[in-house]
Design a protein around this nucleic acid. Sequence first.
RNA 1: GUGGUUGUAGCUCAGUUGGUUAGAGCGCCUGAUUGUGGUUCAGGAGGUCGUCGGUUCGAGACCGAUCUUCCACCCCA
Length: 457
Amino acid sequence: MAQKPTISKGTRDFNAEEVAKRSYIMDTIKEQFRRYGFQPIETPSFENSDTLMGKYGDEGDRLIFKILNSGEYLKKLSDNDYSSKSEAVLTPKISEKALRYDLTVPFARYVVQHQNEIDFPFKRYQIQPVWRADRPQKGRFREFYQCDADVVGSKSLFQEVELIQLYDDVFKNLKLEGVIIKINNRKILSGIAELIGAQDKLIDFTVALDKLDKIGEEKVKAEMRAKGISEEGISKLQPLFDLSGKFSEQIDKLKSILKSSEVGLKGIEELEFINDNISTLGLKTASLELDVTLARGLNYYTGAIFEVAAPAKVKMGSIGGGGRYDDLTGIFGLKDVSGVGISFGLDRIYLVLEELGLFPETIADSTKVLFLNFGNLEAQSCLPAITDLRQKGISAELYPDDVKMKKQMTYANRRNIPFVVLVGEKELEDKSFTLKNMSSGEQRNVSYTELIEALAH
RNA sequence: GUGGUUGUAGCUCAGUUGGUUAGAGCGCCUGAUUGUGGUUCAGGAGGUCGUCGGUUCGAGACCGAUCUUCCACCCCA
């Protein structure tokens, strides 16, 4: 035999059970999205490169899958370009399309393109695969699904409050306990950067701060020094490293740290508003935590930043993220439209639920009843019954081949089909059916009316 | 993109310093049971050892390349 075919790195096939489990998660998320008033849209798998490139930073550009042009694209190159051996020069000339990297940027493009048809504030949800040319690991794939809910055209902080509730509701319905919704505010990060005189190094500063959990205080300081942040500035950060306690206590400490920064205080005010409302409303299973080290690499967030951590006992990166972006549509020419959104990582949630054994048992639908095949004549006599059962909404099938009964029974057993009907010579003669319950093993001879009654519930 | 790791039967894995015919458990197939699956018993099939190349009298084992898996960076869902 020839070499077995394989699938591309970082992609997966899904069998029937996996599809059922994935649908379970998707349906749960969708139901909550709808309940909160979000409307579904879909966008193409690939966009013009211009739409995507440069929106996710240099790192992001590297991870975008580019699609080669069609036709004789090499012939159209100038000799200069051809011999340049430079990706930066060549890539835009031979690739004008790219696979979707996330759902937020295509959404921003959608909003700008359809601005005249949209009623603002516009609440949309979108569940589609995205692609990243990343090196795969556990919980990290090159093709995976994001489930996004965004609101554009409203600056109201009620949106942030609702989105936190939405996270909570989804995890409650998935029976996933111990999820932590981390929140921060980009304005606070800006305020701190301002305080230490590193406004121009905001990204470097936040990226370094974000690693506090992972590499510790000293290494974070070292990285900041390496990025050119002054010693004086770093020493001003000390209260930040020592920040601890409840949400409200942290807020109070931040207020004194940032008292001279207008933007910083604005960020604190926003956080406080969100936290006050969530405290009043209460969360069902998730908890909201302030994490000033939360940065997220994306450069378009301007206000709240969210990241959702799986329960501590599961070793898994974040299972969701999001935030407020005041000017995302600005890059496509539509100014002053503020947006805020969250995202669920379907594939990672799947792994978490699997590891914790949280999928419901009766998740995969199987056929309800299998009619065994005792030969052409007998099988044919079953067809009207099967047709009628299907009409009544009961999934029924006939074993297609006249093979040994043992084989047919084994087949029903493996597929977890709960009932089997036997119509052989005897039943054919007296127009009856033998109905067997596969889990109890019990079987009885019944009329057609009795058969329907037994299978109906 | 950088460094490391993994690959042997359908699945999970053994396989000694390189040495005859590569093993186990589970699963699968057949029969015990010609109208009865899940349990039991008996028997059986199934592997070009990820792929390509090299070293060697001889490679599953050693070397190189490549693909894949997982891990640490980077970044992220």
